[in-house]
Amino acid sequence: MIRHFLAKTLYWSDAAVKKLSFLALGTGVAFLLLMIVFVLRESSLGLGFAMNLFDFLVRQPWAPMATPPSHGIFHAWISTLVVTGLSLGLAIPLGFGIGLFLSEVAPRWVQQVMQPALEVLAGIPAVVYGFFGYVTLVRNFETWFDMPAGECLLIAGLILAVMVLPFVASTAAEAFRGVAQDLREMAYGLGVTQLYVMRRVLFRKALPGLFAAVALGLARALGETLAVLMLAGNTVAVPHSLLDRGQPLTALLTTELGETVVHSDKYQALFASGFILLIVVLGINVMIWTLKHRFLERSHA
């Protein structure tokens, strides 16, 4: 009798765990879908918008107060591209290097200190990074480059690189640590150097994790708002150099959305740029996923 009761309880607890985890997954996916639908609805994207997409993305300037008003986001996505590209260009090689160092070279005590330190760095609020960039780089840039105001895309990119670095580094370190110890011993057992093993075995084996590190860094860099708002200059102008001021998409949304009449043309244009940001993030993730599989096939990992 007791045995029967216990068996039944175990069966029900297993079923409950399955149902609860499915519910959690369903809730997460539902929120994501609802968000996409909401952004799409608020931006009123339709056939007319598709026809004017080129004007919206490239030709028109952002001048909502002009007569007639125009809502082009060329300056914003160029700024986003520059800041994100710069930050990832710095954070990816540095992050992979730190990951490799932590996993392969560093003595155990350094690993024990550095791994939690990276997690702390990843958890520091963006406003602190923004403030740090403001009191260090912005002030100095004004002196070094004789600028009336030091905020520029270069500073935003540099600080964003520092913000993205802990994510890339700790994910890369995990990816390298995940490579089987057997494989290392076998490779070193043939009398080769650490650099050779890293280049020919570790990088190839850790590739899926390294792609995850890039995807994570990219999502963080594209979505970062406050630090770039504080440091990029927040100016509606197409940047021509790294020392120019700019306004990344996230900064444009944050600056303008608060003072916009709901369902006005400007409101819809802002939601449209938000939707484009979402599509870019999704598109890049799909691209990284495809690249990962192509690389994996080529490297036989």
């Binding site: 057997d182 057992g189 043939l190």
Partner: peptide
């Protein structure tokens, strides 16, 4: 290690 090579218990392929 170059002069005295080792074959391990569990064979593992290098990713190539």
């Amino acid at each position: 290690r170059k002069r005295i090579c080792m074959v391990h218990q569990k064979p593992v392929a290098f990713p190539m």
